[in-house]
Design a protein around this nucleic acid. Structure first.
Lengths: 259, 259
DNA sequence: GTATGGCGTCCAACGGGTTGGACAGGTGAT
DNA sequence: ATCACCTGTCCAACCCGTTGGACGCCATAC
């Protein structure tokens, strides 16, 4: 019964600041400090103080008489992205691959039962990817997510999803809704070497995902994906797309394996 | 003699946390908590505590026995970008404009004497833009920066640069190096309606910038730019590019003016 | 006009995080 | 082997941020 979230001496200000940022991030409008305090069940005074401090750091800004996220967060987020070695490589390769360069592609990492998008490449297709950089999405509904889940050691997937029953979000009729269905899909993913999202996130849209393992530290694995309209998926096109995707994934793996 | 950085009751933990994040962001390698404390002249113990707290929020992660920036920052940065109304419009328009869609383009805001890049669009050209989303750059060396500076009320530019003598970074032989040269350039910018970076940031590279005013709150104005190799700049090409850039800027302005 | 409820700011007493130093573990040099 | 120096962790006394409520302000309601 380990207290896994136990810090010896708590520093409430930091945890509170983070909670405030999360709240403001999800809000559609600027939030006042009183409103923030009420939402988070924090004392008014301290909340106001922390907000003022966040204002000075640039993480928050005043807007329409409330607080919104500040530009400092873009800077920090950008620095995080710069630290992900695979990203630059990803953008370069996307532009040079014959098929992928004309389609829509994404690169993501796994965080719990979500994928977190670190980058996207939009070719000249009709599809506009709705997910932006920094967005989260249920891993089971996406090709990148399933490719990354398939990398986890046996049992780990089951543990994560058993601990979080709400993780099975049914976005379409075809979305996976049980651990057993997921395990089966992941076994298939491991077998063929890539993941398929067969209209499980958006009707009419198919997505192929390929994981790239072997990174260091936080970003231990990334995954890349290509998104196309299902109706365009002739066998030849599917094969060409998968070829490009494999090339992309291998290209990302190689410069890092050599370190 | 107002104390412009004066908070009534200071919340050291937040300010310190921000300083820690900035330090870690600029470091090329993971930093230990002791090293951070030394660099920032903070007590070891408190620094360690704050780092542990930042670890729990996901803003920091452990990597190679030290701290690096965490993925939470991408999420927050992404939410900030989502709050900038012009961004989605920008990406859509870039892809549909005949000339710009084949060139390299950027969108940025002004922050003091720097521009902060919020997005970029890379066409099929040889040029790869070195600046990433979230990067800063001296405003005087860039087309976006000069376009935004030209929007400021009279005297404001002079005040900003007089207060910050180090802001005149000489990146190339052609970079502006004095307030008077800058004022003259900005007058010219206002007159013709767009800004030009004539190899002032990178030799051999010319950049045109167009400001878009009229936003609310934090992002009161954005600027878009197009970057090309100087040697390709025939008069016809230059004109076509400027046409596209103007269309782009107007497209960004209109959906917001109607609010 | 007053009443009500929203907002953020201010204040003094309380309480808890901060602090410096001691400690244990690991690494590299001599 | 010892020494030196690094790392991060632990602890109790002290100090300073936190806290709840009072206050002033501005809307809107009646």
């Amino acid at each position: 019964m380990a207290n896994n979230s136990g810090t010896r001496t708590a520093v409430p200000a930091v945890a509170r600041a983070s909670a405030i940022l999360d709240l403001v991030a999800l809000a559609q409008q600027p939030l006042g400090s009183n409103e923030i305090a009420r939402s988070l069940s924090l004392p008014k005074s301290s909340t106001a103080n922390i907000c003022l401090e966040l204002l000075e750091t640039g993480m928050l800004v005043r807007r329409d008489g409330g607080y919104s996220l500040g530009r400092k967060l873009v800077e920090l987020g950008g620095h995080y992205l710069s630290s992900v070695d695979a990203l630059r490589e990803y953008y370069d390769m996307c532009a040079s691959l014959p098929i992928v360069s004309r389609e829509s592609s994404r690169i993501a990492i796994l965080d719990g039962t979500d994928v977190l998008y670190l980058g996207k490449y939009e070719g000249r297709q009709q599809i506009r990817l709705t997910a932006n950089i920094g967005d989260r999405f249920p891993a089971i509904c996406t090709a990148t997510g399933k490719a990354l889940l398939a990398l986890l050691p046996p049992g780990e997937v089951e543990d994560r999803y058993r601990a979080k029953p709400g993780a099975f979000v049914k976005l379409t009729e075809k979305s996976l809704t049980s651990i057993s269905a997921l395990s089966k899909d992941l076994a298939l993913t491991r077998e063929r070497g890539y993941a398929v999202d067969d209209e499980e996130a958006t009707p009419g849209v198919t997505c192929f995902g390929h994981a790239v393992a072997g990174f260091r530290g936080d970003t231990s694995a990334v995954a890349v994906s290509a998104t196309v309209l299902t109706q365009r998926l002739t066998p030849e096109f599917r094969q060409a797309l998968l070829n490009d995707l494999r090339t992309l994934a291998r290209g990302l793996a190689n410069p890092l394996a050599s370190r």
